Amino acid sequence: MSTWKFKPGQRDAAIEVISKEGDAAEKKGSRGHLFLMPAEDPDAGVFITLWEDEESLQASREGVFKGISRDIEQYTASPPEVKKLHVHSAEIAEIAPEIVKPA
């Protein structure tokens, strides 16, 4: 999980870069992701990625995450806060397109 703080008004520009680069990157071992945008803070975002194993997570950290972090640095107010969490339990249903707001 990474929590990002963007410069005022720059979240959308950063999300555009994240989306393009994330979609183009090889995501071996990826099980999916969520990008959450807090309603109370238009300059913040929380990115949650799910990985099959530790090896896949580490490969992403060294490749895709480093590259995206570097490429959106101009939009960020500070480096992201990164936490490694383990899934205790999950229930995942299909997300209805009408509740997902495009970036």
Rank of each mutant, 00 (worst) to 15 (best):
31 R>T: 03
44 A>C: 08
96 A>S: 12
66 K>P: 03
18 I>N: 01
101 K>M: 09
79 P>F: 01
67 G>T: 10
51 W>V: 02
21 E>P: 02
103 A>F: 13
86 H>M: 11
54 E>W: 05
99 I>G: 03
77 A>D: 04
4 W>H: 12
38 P>R: 00
47 F>I: 08
38 P>Y: 00
6 F>R: 09
11 R>K: 13
5 K>I: 09
9 G>T: 05
94 E>D: 13
5 K>T: 15
8 P>V: 11
85 L>K: 04
62 E>L: 10
99 I>L: 10
25 A>I: 05
40 E>G: 10
42 P>A: 06
85 L>W: 11
40 E>K: 14
2 S>K: 09
22 G>Y: 09
59 A>G: 02
52 E>H: 07
29 G>F: 06
9 G>H: 04
3 T>C: 05
68 I>Q: 01
82 V>I: 15
59 A>N: 06
42 P>R: 02
11 R>C: 01
98 E>K: 13
43 D>V: 00
33 H>Y: 15
59 A>E: 05
55 E>C: 01
23 D>A: 15
80 P>Y: 00
9 G>W: 05
80 P>H: 02
76 T>V: 07
4 W>L: 11
13 A>K: 15
99 I>N: 03
5 K>F: 03
96 A>Y: 04
19 S>W: 07
64 V>M: 13
70 R>F: 11
64 V>Q: 12
